[in-house]
Simulated scan of single mutants.
Amino acid sequence: MTLKLDNLAIYNKNSAGKRPLLEVNVEIKAGEVVSIMGPSGSGKSSLLNAIAGQLREPFKQTGCIYLNTALIDDLPPYKRKIGVLYQDPLLFEHMNVGENIAFAMVQNKQIAASQRQTRIAAMLESVGLADMATRPVHSLSGGQQARVALLRTLAASPSAVLLDEPFSKLDINTRGQMRKWVFEQLLKRQLPTLMVTHDKQDAIAAGGRIIELPPC
């Protein structure tokens, strides 16, 4: 599986002139993490929104987005099979840990309802959160919530993953552990991944190519 951005450019219709916020031309291979670094306002989050099918006015895009050889530009977000992990876990507070993961599994038609609880238990055990399926999410530490957020993303069986400053709100010790664990999970599943970050250490830890955007 590959994620290809073919001369993808993001524009702000309200800006003077016709110069794009950013232009990216890259093919991300299975298991590779490509990092994009740039100052605030350089269009990094808008780029991820474009790939996920969430770009809104006043922004627009040109160029093409391919998942493997399939053009996905005109597909709605729920059909793109793109997983997104944000800097905030964005877990559902009215659901417990297991229910948060199960929510993503409902979207994944490959997992039968009878298999979900067994699959959830195995996923939680694999990240050191065994027996926490019934825990309220607000009772978890920041690192635990981050792990559950990634499990929920992976539970939908995405074909590619986008990381939006995923470690920026973690303390230093937890951050290093989460970097290692997240990148191991993505490599294990051979998922092409695009990460935007302000932190050079995040990009170095990802081990892939680094694209640095110029100042606006």
Rank of each mutant, 00 (worst) to 15 (best):
L67P: 00
N68I: 01
N68H: 01
T69V: 02
A70E: 14
L71H: 06
I72P: 03
I72N: 05
I72Q: 07
I72L: 09
D73V: 09
D73K: 10
D73A: 08
D73W: 09
D73I: 12
D74W: 04
D74E: 15
D74A: 14
L75F: 15
L75Q: 15
P76S: 09
P76E: 08
P76R: 05
P76Q: 10
P76T: 08
P77I: 09
P77Q: 04
P77D: 12
Y78A: 12
K79N: 12
K79D: 15
K79A: 11
K79Y: 11
R80T: 09
R80H: 12
R80L: 09
R80G: 11
K81S: 14
K81W: 04
I82T: 11
I82N: 12
I82S: 10
I82R: 06
I82A: 07
G83H: 01
G83T: 04
G83R: 01
G83F: 03
G83K: 01
V84F: 13
V84I: 15
L85D: 11
L85K: 09
L85Q: 13
L85G: 13
L85E: 13
L85S: 10
Q87N: 11
D88M: 05
P89F: 14
P89E: 05
L90M: 11
L90N: 14
L91F: 07
L91P: 05
E93A: 14
E93Y: 06
E93T: 12
E93S: 14
H94C: 01
H94W: 06
H94P: 00
H94V: 02
M95C: 00
N96C: 11
N96T: 02
N96E: 00
N96A: 02
G98N: 02
G98Q: 06
G98H: 01
G98T: 02
E99G: 00
E99I: 04
N100E: 05
I101F: 10
I101Q: 02
A102K: 06
A102I: 12
F103R: 12
F103V: 10
F103I: 08
A104V: 05
A104H: 04
M105H: 05
V106Q: 15
V106Y: 03
